[in-house]
């Protein structure tokens, strides 16, 4: 009885001591200038600057390069296998399903005519977001898309793609004129024009925040669950199975979330491009 009380006090103490809450969790998911291979040490990344502008290579950039490299190598082999025969086999089959899914379920129905121009962009976005998320689940790696700067960059590229699609099919002036619904009273334009301009930016902003939050949430929950073991170190043997079990569940859920988010990011981008292309709706 007394033991139990003492233990509880100890737990509270440790929790209070490690104030700053889950600071270590944030450090784990946040970007940094080194790649941790604890307990084996770490890899320092070089600091760079361009015109006084800090463009240091960070952990997330490093892993985004790895993701990009994996994509290029794997998809190169997939593409090469088509040279041998048009009948897919093994790995090619797997990638073909995804590529056809992106083409026929996401891009074609939302953009419609002229979708071929945007297809490489969407395929790249889909595969990049998907692999970045999945790669983030590998120990010692890091979720690239769990960095708000990365998702902001992706959303920015989406933004450019959306405007490009609109301008390409409606003309520069036609596109911006088409943003304002026709048949509006003159005085309403004062409100409508700022709203529409704001609307242009909220779409990619939502894309950015959605992907970032979804990618980071799973990791934070997993790390929190693992952290419980150390917070309740006195009952570590009792807590560990529960924590590991739950984090395993979240881990699996994360795989699902990554798939869904890759789909949603691509789908919404395609949808926005479709909306910009077909303004009459």
């Amino acid at each position: 009885m007394i033991n139990a009380i003492q233990d509880t006090v100890a737990v509270v103490d440790t929790v209070r001591k490690s104030s700053g809450g889950g600071g270590w969790i944030l450090q784990e998911v946040m970007d940094s200038h080194k790649i941790d291979f604890e307990p084996f040490g770490f890899l320092n990344l070089p600091h760079l600057s361009l015109f006084g502008f800090d463009i240091s290579i960070t952990k997330h950039i490093f892993f985004s390069w790895i993701v990009a490299l994996i994509l290029i190598v794997v998809l190169f082999f997939v593409a090469r296998s088509y040279k041998k025969s048009l009948i897919p086999k093994g790995l090619t089959n797997f990638f073909e399903i995804i590529i056809i899914f992106v083409r026929d379920e996401i891009v074609k129905p939302t953009i419609g005519k002229g979708y071929e121009f945007f297809l490489p962009f969407h395929l790249t976005v889909f595969f990049f977001v998907l692999l970045a998320g999945l790669f983030g689940l590998v120990p010692y790696s890091s979720t690239v898309t769990g960095n708000i700067a990365v998702t902001a960059a992706l959303a920015g590229i989406s933004f450019i793609a959306i405007q490009l699609g609109g301008i390409k099919s409606n003309g520069f002036f036609g596109y911006f004129k088409g943003l304002i619904p026709s048949g509006m009273p003159k005085w309403l334009l004062v409100i409508i024009i700022p709203l529409e301009i704001l609307g242009l930016f909220t779409k990619p902003f939502a894309l950015c925040i959605r992907l970032f939050a979804n990618m980071i949430a799973g990791h934070v929950v997993i790390l929190s669950l693992i952290g419980l073991i150390f917070i309740f170190s006195a009952f570590a043997y009792a807590v560990a199975p529960i924590s590991v079990g739950f984090s395993l569940f979240i881990y699996l859920l994360d795989i699902l979330i990554i798939l869904i988010q890759a789909y949603i990011f691509t789908m919404l981008t395609a949808l926005f491009i479709g909306m910009a292309v077909h303004q009459e709706h």
């Binding site: 970007d31 502008f53 800090d54 463009i55 240091s56 290579i57 960070t58 997330h60 950039i61 985004s64 390069w65 990009a68 994509l71 290029i72 998809l75 190169f76 997939v78 593409a79 297809l119 490489p120 962009f121 395929l123 790249t124 595969f127 990049f128 960095n147 700067a149 990365v150 902001a152 960059a153 992706l154 920015g156 590229i157």
Partner: peptide
């Protein structure tokens, strides 16, 4: 800096993949 590198990485990735894979 991360935005800069991500944009660079993504654009290069897109064009390389377009040529090599898509």
């Amino acid at each position: 800096g991360v935005i800069f590198w991500t944009v660079v990485t993504f654009v290069i990735l897109m064009f390389v993949l377009k040529k090599v894979a898509w």
